[in-house]
Amino acid sequence: MSSDPTMRLCEQMGILKIIENAGGNIISNTCMDQPCWKFLYGKKGVTDSPKCAYYTKRRKMEFVITDLENATYSALEGEVTSDRKKQFI
């Protein structure tokens, strides 16, 4: 999730395409504390934000909290590990 100007900048710079090709997306104008995430209720995810995990507890979303770098590796692999070698680029 990001702001619309940032998402458009990413689109102009080809970054959005890289994320989309990896199976991801940049969602603009959207907050995680909204009913549009119902399809993730009851599932387990990864985030870099304690705030995200805190606010979504009431929506029955569970999060592993780790740094953005490790969270990205985890998203690509489908699993969060504690492998320190991967944590920071």
């Binding site: 985030t47 999060f63 699993e79 504690s82």
Partner: peptide, 24 residues
């Protein structure tokens, strides 16, 4: 505060909204 490490179903970043540098 974190759930245990292991298999995940999804990843969600951007709370607060990610900066351009974070997306990079």
């Amino acid at each position: 505060i974190s759930a245990p490490i292991g298999k995940i179903d999804f990843a969600l970043f951007g709370c607060p909204h990610l900066t351009f540098e974070q997306i990079e």
